[in-house]
Amino acid sequence: MNRQNRPAFGTFVFFTLALGLATYFTFAAVQGDFGLFRRAEISADAQVLRSQLAELEAEVARMENLTLRLSDDYLDLDLLDEQARRVLGRIRADEIVIR
């Protein structure tokens, strides 16, 4: 048998190995821990967390406003009256209670 007519087994192994590695790295780039799908998931999670942060910052600002309005430096008598009636479970004579 002539050496030139024989199929090159080494070439076949090389290309098979190269195809396998290319497939593995392509899969890892898309599906892996640091792949494209994971990056999209992290971006979506970050957006949700940003919206939760904005809600919490608004709540903190509201609570700071209420705290200021009940502080010694600035006392909002209407707010104080509302809070006292809420805690004590009382109503004024001119109020209507709807249940």
Rank of each mutant, 00 (worst) to 15 (best):
Y24F: 10
A93Y: 08
N2W: 07
E59T: 08
G32D: 09
M63K: 12
I42D: 07
D33S: 14
Q31Y: 15
R90P: 00
A8S: 13
D76Y: 01
R99L: 12
V13N: 09
E41I: 06
R38F: 03
E41N: 09
A18F: 13
F34L: 11
R69N: 09
D33W: 06
T26S: 11
L21Y: 11
E41G: 07
L79A: 03
T26A: 14
E55R: 11
A28M: 08
R3P: 08
A44K: 13
A28Y: 04
D78A: 06
L53N: 12
A28W: 05
E57M: 06
F37E: 11
R3T: 14
R6G: 03
V30W: 11
F14M: 06
A58S: 11
L56H: 09
Q47C: 02
L56N: 13
G20R: 02
R85N: 09
L66W: 10
I96D: 09
L56P: 00
N5T: 14
G32S: 08
E59M: 05
R86W: 07
D78L: 05
D81Y: 01
A46G: 05
Y24P: 00
Q31S: 06
Q47N: 10
A40G: 02
E55S: 14
E59G: 01
Q47V: 12
F27W: 13
L66K: 05
D45W: 04
R85W: 00
N65L: 11
T26Q: 04
L88N: 07
Q83M: 11
Q83V: 14
Q4A: 15
G89V: 05
V48N: 07
L70V: 01
N2H: 11
R69W: 02
Q47I: 11
V13A: 13
Q31P: 00
E57S: 10
D78H: 04
L17K: 06
I96M: 13
R69S: 06
I96A: 15
A54K: 12
R99V: 14
F34N: 15
D45F: 05
